[in-house]
């Protein structure tokens, strides 16, 4: 196998919420250019896993590396795990753009302002450069005419595409998608998936938590199936969809069709 750059690496990640252990030791790494679909029944921990990658949730134990840099964690006196260096966390988050299920565009800003906000204020990109780049990405996601609109005036599909443009504008190492089409009306799902398909073809590194079996099967280069906080399957879609190793996954596929 050729030498590939590791964008994100998780090693034995554990996370519990009170008595409920959501992640029970996850080890996964994403290489540059990979499009990974994370599948799993609800409650399997897939969203938590994604949120651990950009530290919206702090893993209780395990190691997390983002483009070769290990996230420094420490224990508090009451034995909670917290980041040792908040500046490092902010730096790492800026490399990992996230697309949310509920879009989470900033409602008091126009679409253009949404897209340039983090580049200008977090990455300190010169404003004009950020605007030029924003126009380019809004073009790419197919809503170049909406830059002066406010999020509330767009359809769900347009909002999610704007949110994808916001993610692209960070020129991130990896884009994390947290069920990006789950909050959309069925007729709007296609336009968002098409944008994501284009990004995959460009060779962008993507980790996508999704219920879209078509996307997982046809677009992703790798599929991970999570159940009860553990990785049950991990492989190329054509292999694991055709020859599931676990009964859980074959049952899951059957239920989803």
């Amino acid at each position: 196998m050729e030498e590939r750059i590791v964008s994100v690496a998780l090693d034995d990640i554990h996370k519990r919420f009170d008595a409920n252990e959501v992640l029970k030791g996850i080890s996964v790494s994403a290489h540059q250019g990979e499009v990974i679909s994370v599948l799993g029944p609800s409650g399997s921990g897939k969203s938590t896993l994604l949120r651990c990658i950009n530290l919206l949730e702090i893993p209780d134990s395990g190691r997390l590396l983002v483009s070769g840099e290990e996230v420094l964690l420490k224990k508090t006196r009451d034995n909670r795990t917290v980041p040792a260096d908040t500046k490092q966390v902010e730096r790492i988050r800026a490399k990992l753009a996230m697309v949310f299920q509920q879009f989470n565009l900033w409602s008091h800003m126009t679409i253009l302002q949404n897209v340039i906000e983090a580049p200008v204020h977090v990455l300190k990109t010169p404003r004009q450069e950020a605007i030029d780049r924003a126009m380019m990405y809004l073009e790419k996601v197919g809503i170049p005419d909406k830059l002066e609109a406010y999020p509330a005036h767009l359809s769900g599909g347009q909002q999610q595409r704007a949110a994808i443009a916001r993610a692209l504008a960070m020129e991130p190492e990896v884009i994390l998608f947290d069920e990006p089409t789950s909050a959309l009306d069925p007729e709007l799902v296609g336009e968002v998936l098409q944008v994501m398909r284009n990004l995959a073809e460009e060779g962008r590194t993507m980790i996508v938590v999704t219920h879209e079996m078509g996307f997982a099967r046809e677009v992703s280069s790798r599929v991970i199936f999570l159940d009860e906080g553990l990785v049950m399957e991990d492989g190329a879609p054509e292999i694991i969809f055709n020859n599931p190793e676990t009964d859980r996954f074959s049952a899951f596929i059957k239920a989803m069709v």
């Binding site: 730096r91 988050r93 996230m98 949310f100 977090v122 916001r166």
Partner: peptide, 19 residues
């Protein structure tokens, strides 16, 4: 969710509050 988006894009707590 909008506050979380700020955090996720690398903003500090103060920046999320201010912006």
């Amino acid at each position: 969710g909008q506050l979380e988006a700020g955090t996720a894009y690398g903003m500090s707590g103060f920046m999320v509050f201010r912006r």
